[in-house]
Nucleic acid binder design. Structure first.
Ligand SMILES: [Zn+2]
Ligand SMILES: [Zn+2]
Ligand SMILES: [Zn+2]
Ligand SMILES: [Zn+2]
Lengths: 169, 169
DNA sequence: CTCATAGACGTTATGTTATAACATTTTATG
DNA sequence: CATAAAATGTTATAACATAACGTCTATGAG
């Protein structure tokens, strides 16, 4: 993964409402397989299905929505099944938990180490992952000034995306 | 409240584990009364009690902990009672919800408009509110570059405070 | 191939957080 | 006092998450 960079995960930040989502999904699944292989982890059919269900859209999806979708698909499932898969996927950085929504989104660029920073649209519900280095660094530095050592960061903002601003009238 | 600034709410950021917490509480309650008066809102005994319970420490407190404490105090209470008070207090900026913990803390400087930015210690559990303007601004600007208009921000970081770093060995 | 092991998954039950809906009481005000 | 608005009481349930333990399955050693 150090040679060609034909995929441009950062382009997700500029994603429009009518983008080629099939590409998002394909890239996400390909990345997932690479990450799992690299980590010696197993992307079982069940885990893969949960990842696919999360990637059905860019709208954060709750654990029980996933559960319902799995049942709709004929598969027997219970909460622990879903939460285990979510824990596995989050552990590998393949998904992010959105704390303010109790929901999950697929990570747009799971191959690179990063802190999740997310924009949440109150109009369409879509989440957009961004990566503003100065925020992560500013937070780390600001905390360090107080003697606080940051281990993990959560940065979530809500508002209106470009499309939903033009729609609102 | 525009004249003397004898209280230094920002000093909370440097708060030690053995600070004068009585002062924190006294200031918080005084601020609450001022804010309520300014807004024409009523700080009823029940709301005041919830605020006091939240201010028992700097550790974020869950709604049901508050509920239990109210019942311990002999008062009859049910979940909606607590959640209504929390909603009221949060609406006035007197408390902040900590999304990553499903819990609440008292706001250290409710008189000034601000976005909550919080450091959460995994050791002692205490929350420290900080205010790094460049983060709020960087987030707003970074989002604006994508055409996204931010209405609300959540910034939470976990790690170890100074005291808990020295303790850990 | 058989067995031991570890990881994944199934299953049941329960814990935890939050809100809907409607009744009643309190407070402010004319 | 009459009235309306705000606050609170009350019951029930929705929504989110995990504990605990049993079973299955892939894998590798012997
Ligand atoms: Zn997409
Ligand atoms: Zn939108
Ligand atoms: Zn204090
Ligand atoms: Zn600490």
């Amino acid at each position: 993964m150090s040679s060609a960079d034909s995929n441009t995960p950062a382009s997700n930040a500029n994603r429009d409402h009518d983008h080629d989502h099939g590409k998002c999904v394909a890239e996400a699944l390909a990345s997932a397989e690479r990450v799992c292989e690299a980590q010696g982890a197993r992307l079982t059919p069940q885990r893969r299905q949960v990842l696919e269900l999360i990637w059905r859209s860019h709208v954060p999806v709750g654990a029980y929505e996933i559960l319902d979708a799995m049942r709709d698909g004929g598969r027997r499932a219970d909460p622990p099944t879903v939460y285990r898969a979510l824990e596995f996927l989050a552990g590998l950085g393949l998904i992010h938990r959105i704390s303010t929504r109790n929901a999950f989104i697929g990570c747009s660029h799971p191959m690179s180490e990063h802190r999740a920073q997310v924009l949440l649209c109150d109009g369409c519900g879509q989440a957009t992952e961004i990566e503003i280095g100065t925020i992560a660094q500013g937070l780390t530095d600001g905390a360090a000034d107080l003697g606080f050592a940051i281990a993990d960061q959560t940065v979530e903002a809500s508002g209106l995306c470009r499309s939903c601003q033009s729609t609102a009238h």
